[in-house]
Design a protein around this nucleic acid. Sequence first.
DNA 1: CAAGAGCTGAGAACGAGTTGCAACTGGAAG
DNA 2: CTTCCAGTTGCAACTCGTTCTCAGCTCTTG
Lengths: 138, 138
Amino acid sequence: MGERRADRLEQALREAGVRVTRQRAALLRVIADADDHPDAAELHGRAVTAGAGVSLATVYRTLTTLRAQGVIEKLEFQGEPARWEAADQRHHDHMIDLDSGAVMEFTDERIERLQAEIAAEMGYEIVHHRLELYVRRR
Amino acid sequence: MGERRADRLEQALREAGVRVTRQRAALLRVIADADDHPDAAELHGRAVTAGAGVSLATVYRTLTTLRAQGVIEKLEFQGEPARWEAADQRHHDHMIDLDSGAVMEFTDERIERLQAEIAAEMGYEIVHHRLELYVRRR
DNA sequence: CAAGAGCTGAGAACGAGTTGCAACTGGAAG
DNA sequence: CTTCCAGTTGCAACTCGTTCTCAGCTCTTG
């Protein structure tokens, strides 16, 4: 599945001087294969199931490392444990279905533009933002 | 200062069948007086300084109760402990200065409208949303 | 003013995430 | 290929914000 992608990520890490260990490679694979938004425990479970011996502590350490490398992104929704997603995609915001827990992605250029405008008016520039819509089917 | 406001809130609670105890009254006062966004420990500190004997556990319990009554709102910014604000104000979003930690408020009708539009397009209605701009002075 | 539903304080428990430390590797240098 | 060691790992202990347990209060209502 996401082997190509994982290989690419490994390469990027090596070039950044980050050691690609058995555990890190396993996690890269799991993350590249995920099309949802798993939390640390879930990622750990998947890696272990895939036959990789990894401890949860290492999963956390690795996630921190990968984030510092800009390879993955951390999502912190209200109350729940943090979730993660590969970062090599277009920017997008999230919509959370309160009933099913499903997380959907969306973007809207107009909103992006308005945000920048508002910040600029107050003398700031946006470093990063977070927009989450908690919704219910109708 | 915020005595009028606190009295109004007390009244609302009583009417909702919630007992207004010494501790709760003290917290209502502290919250009505706050013009910033304090976390539980900070609120506890202020209440104690104001001469009220309150335990931290009760602060948490009371915050939960007040929130259920719609009297206050919980803000969960990235990583930090939750912060609280009185809810009897117009809706607004937040802008966080990454350098000073200052939290500013803003609203933009256009953004609100776009959000509703986007949700509607996907067959959802917004129950609640969260928009935070993490910014830096320029 | 008796009674019990509702509150409270103190501390133990919890859950996600982090850290200290001794035992291990990647992978660069020889 | 080996050697070597800074970078990693596993485990257990720890942190920190928050919640829970439970015995003892305290409001209200009858």
